[in-house]
Computed example of a mutant assay.
Amino acid sequence: MNQKHINELFEIIADGSLDAEDIAAMSDEVLKAHTDAVAYLQADTGSQYQESYPLPLWEWVLLEQLEGGLIFHAPQVDALYAQIVDAFGDDELDLTVADLAGLNADAALAKVQEELAPTYSVVDFSQSVAREKQVVLVRTAKLARFLELSAVLGIHAAA
């Protein structure tokens, strides 16, 4: 695992909202979890990670680092979009959560993508342990590199 790849992945997702020191600290956590999962879990007694999860500890730690507005997850698209609206702030997006009512998941996601395009792409990212929809927003201009980095790291990502 290459710290440069993890840093770049975080930089693309953060899109300027985090400084280099924060990104370095986040990637250090991921590398610690990758290098020695047992020691990491012993040191992080508050971790909710379970060995039965369908993803390795380091990926779980990576996802935890994205909490707080960089990753969005919810059982339904309208709830997912409500989180995105909160991250952007009031009056930044024209599409409302109510506009998604009555649409199936695919149609609702298409509407969300249409709202965020051409600047952002909605990317299905990693696996949600709770079987929820889980996405990150990536600048469309950086999407190809993001998908490449995800593949190199072995993380599921699909636009």
Rank of each mutant, 00 (worst) to 15 (best):
M26W: 07
A159F: 08
I84R: 06
F72S: 00
Y53E: 10
A39K: 10
A24R: 13
A82C: 00
N104S: 09
A110C: 00
L116V: 00
Q50K: 15
Q134V: 04
Q3H: 02
A130Y: 10
D36M: 02
A74W: 02
L153T: 08
D90I: 12
V77I: 14
A43W: 01
L153A: 13
F72R: 02
A37V: 06
A117V: 03
T140H: 08
A151D: 12
Q83V: 03
L31T: 10
P56W: 10
L63P: 03
L31P: 01
Q65E: 14
A74T: 00
S126E: 02
A151L: 04
S17Y: 10
E67F: 02
F125S: 07
I71Y: 05
P54N: 15
S128R: 06
L143F: 08
P56R: 14
V135G: 09
Q48M: 08
K142P: 05
I13T: 05
E11Y: 01
I155P: 03
H73R: 07
D19M: 02
Y81G: 00
T96W: 03
A98V: 13
Y40T: 01
V38R: 12
K32A: 13
A39S: 14
A117M: 02
L149I: 06
A24W: 04
L95N: 04
H5P: 07
S128A: 11
D36R: 03
M26Y: 09
G16H: 07
A130W: 11
A37W: 07
E11V: 03
L63W: 03
F88Q: 15
F72T: 01
G102M: 09
L9T: 12
A24S: 15
H156R: 10
G89W: 00
L93E: 04
V152L: 15
W58F: 13
S121F: 12
A110H: 01
S27E: 11
A24F: 04
Y81Q: 05
T96S: 14
Q134K: 02
I71R: 11
F146R: 11
G89N: 03
H73D: 03
Y40D: 02
E59Q: 11
A101C: 00
T35Q: 13
P75E: 15
I6G: 08
L149R: 05
D36E: 01
